[in-house]
Design a protein around this nucleic acid. Structure first.
Lengths: 255, 255
DNA sequence: GAAATAGTGTCTATGAGACAATATAGC
DNA sequence: GCTATATTGTCTCATAGACACTATTTC
């Protein structure tokens, strides 16, 4: 154990890491009906999944789900495995974003933590929230989570993850990870606002449908006979359904 | 050595990593005078620094500079230390971009490599290229480097690094890392083109100077008396000098 | 005046941004 | 008809993109 694979390597007497965990910031967007109105846009909120630690260190504190990488897998495979063990979901958007290696960050030893963001649709986690271990696993609003004392340096990790998805929400099409295949533009707008409360575009519909440079990221959903598909789930007047294309524009600050 | 810091940790019988190297993709842009013309724009080329390995494994192959992280430092501190040892430069732009952890990627054992991009001005490396170890250290055009067989998975790392700086060249102001404090718009344009050969903007000057949304990333350089500063280093007619402001716009695919 | 790069004029089409106005369907 | 959301009309101004033209200095 912990011997080097062979002796050609002069660093074999060096101290080596005690582990390389992957930690996963699992985000979801919950919808809740607004009281009163019958057909009204639901309130959407960005939430993060945390686990209450059962043992030393940081026993009793909330922490990000995660686990140790094995020598037979990549850190990404580890994250995907832990994600499935923890939430039962697979095939979700998982994105590596940083490594945390500050000496002393883990009292158990020299641990290099690899942090991922996972984006999960609310429906995927539906069963989870009512499971027996509900007390140890919580889905909580991000504003609440960043206000808590978390285990290890998980608060920094969470803040970095948040920053990360805010940037990527605006520069990539990850909004699709929180939406059904076909959605209305109000839904899209709400998803963006759930992640970035300050996002405000008065003419949102105008822009995403008519802008030449951005045209191409969205297309109208049509049924078998070619008629535009609409939905009146959230409105009296049916709204046009859209879907993301697989085109992703290249942004530039220079033009 | 390699014992866990304490016994509370149930994973203490697991295999642990054999090392966590940092590898650094050091980019620079070289300028060379074009033959013939007296005052002409130099040719700028993106180059990468590679080191010829002297020992097993991959002896004789070119590799990215790097080295092992110590338990008393972060992987970033390791990268910065290695960068200085290797090139003598400090205070340069250094950016972490990915971890490489595929089992078997390093025949010496279970190594998790943390990859960085460093952006260095040509002048910083000037002394280095004529040093004694010139045969072991090379600054070579990136097109050449990606065509070579490199040690470990360094070719993948290099390709990823290239993709990374191409995106960041267009979405952030890292172009400043390759330019003097004050520069002409032709120089800026050339730097962008050295990194992204396909970048073409006919009205480059127009855009960066007159666009409201982008206005703010650049400002005209002025001398003590408030007069605009110009340079005729590369042209007969003097060109206005600019500098980057510290404003960095937030791009969005939605408007 | 030729060379070499810097910068402007001009024209057209399109987009941004603001808001008012109208449309649709359920209640 | 009221409500709540969806969508279009309209107007103004700024920008994109193309390309010809003028400017400035050195040789």
């Amino acid at each position: 154990m912990n011997e080097h694979a062979n002796g050609h390597y002069s660093a074999s007497s060096y101290r080596t890491p005690d582990g390389a965990p992957s930690d996963i910031v699992i985000f979801t967007i919950t919808s809740s009906e607004r009281a009163g109105a019958k057909k009204a846009l639901p309130t959407r909120r960005l939430e993060v999944l945390l686990i209450k630690r059962q043992k030393w260190p940081f026993e009793g504190l909330w922490a990000l789900p995660g686990g140790f990488t094995k020598e037979t897998e990549t850190v990404e495979e580890c994250a995907r495995r832990e994600l499935e063990e923890e939430t039962g979901v697979s095939d979700v958007h998982l994105e590596y974003f940083n490594v945390y290696s500050k000496p002393g960050r883990d009292p158990r030893g020299w641990m290099l933590s690899h942090a991922f963001v996972a984006l999960v649709r609310e429906s995927f986690l539906a069963g989870r929230r009512t499971s027996d271990e509900a007390a140890d696993v919580a889905l909580m609003p991000v504003e609440d989570a960043v206000g808590l004392e978390l285990a290890f340096d998980h608060r920094s990790i969470l803040e970095d993850a948040l920053e990360r998805i805010r940037v990527r929400m605006l520069t990539t099409t990850i909004a699709k990870e929180f939406l059904p295949e076909e959605f209305t533009l109000s839904e899209l707008y709400q998803v963006i606002r759930a992640v970035i409360p300050s996002f405000e575009e008065r003419n949102f519909i105008r822009k995403v449908t008519s802008t030449q440079s951005r045209k191409g990221i969205l297309e109208e959903a049509r049924d078998a006979s070619g008629e535009p598909k609409t939905s009146n789930r959230y409105s009296q007047r049916p709204a046009q359904l859209y879907r993301f294309t697989d085109y992703s524009p290249m942004l530039s600050i220079y033009g």
